[in-house]
Amino acid sequence: MKLPTPRGPVSEALINALTRAPHAISAGDPSDADDLHLALFVCYELHYRGWDGVDDAWEWEPGLLGVRAALEALFEADLRTLGVPVAVKDVPHALIDLTREAGGPSLSGYIRGRATREQFREFAAHRSVYHLREADPHTFAIPRLSGPAKAALLEIQIDEYGGGVLNRMHQELFKSTMTALNLDTTYGAYVDLVPAATLANNNLMSLFGLHRRWRGALLGHLAAYEMTSTGPNRNYGNGLRRLGGSEAATRFYDEHVEADAVHEQIAAFDMCGSFATAEPELAADVLFGARCVLTLDDRWASDVLAAWSAGESSLRAAL
Rank of each mutant, 00 (worst) to 15 (best):
N238D: 15
V86R: 13
E172N: 12
D78C: 06
L287D: 06
E226L: 11
R114C: 08
F120Y: 13
A135K: 07
Q119C: 01
E122S: 00
I158R: 15
H93Y: 01
I266W: 08
V10C: 13
L154G: 07
A151S: 15
I142T: 15
P4E: 03
A268C: 14
D297N: 10
V286L: 06
S146C: 06
L71D: 05
Y110N: 05
V129T: 08
D297M: 11
R242Q: 03
I15S: 09
Q171I: 15
G209L: 09
L132K: 03
V286I: 15
A261N: 10
F123N: 00
L98S: 12
M205C: 11
D35R: 03
R251P: 03
D55C: 02
R251W: 09
F75K: 09
P105E: 05
A310D: 08
P9A: 12
A318W: 00
L107Y: 06
V86S: 14
L219K: 08
Q157D: 13
A27S: 11
L287M: 11
H37R: 07
L305V: 00
R127H: 11
F41G: 07
L154Y: 11
F288D: 02
V86G: 14
P62F: 08
V257W: 05
R112S: 04
A33H: 09
L294A: 03
A151Q: 13
V54E: 03
R114M: 11
G103S: 14
G273S: 12
L305P: 00
L305D: 00
E247F: 11
T198Y: 10
L166S: 09
A248L: 06
L222Y: 03
D260L: 06
A57H: 06
S229R: 07
N233S: 07
H170T: 02
L305R: 00
H37A: 03
R49K: 11
T198F: 09
D270F: 11
A276E: 06
A301Q: 02
H37S: 06
V42D: 04
D32P: 12
G104Y: 06
H23F: 03
A149W: 14
H221D: 12
S313N: 02
K150G: 08
E12W: 04
D298W: 07
G162Y: 10
H256S: 03
A200K: 14
G188M: 06
G8K: 02
A283H: 07
D254L: 10
A77V: 06
A224D: 05
F174K: 10
L132Y: 06
G103K: 12
Q171D: 07
D55V: 02
H263N: 07
N235T: 01
A135S: 13
F252H: 13
L240T: 01
E45C: 01
D298F: 08
A301D: 02
A278G: 06
S176F: 07
R242T: 01
A33C: 07
R114Y: 11
G147Q: 07
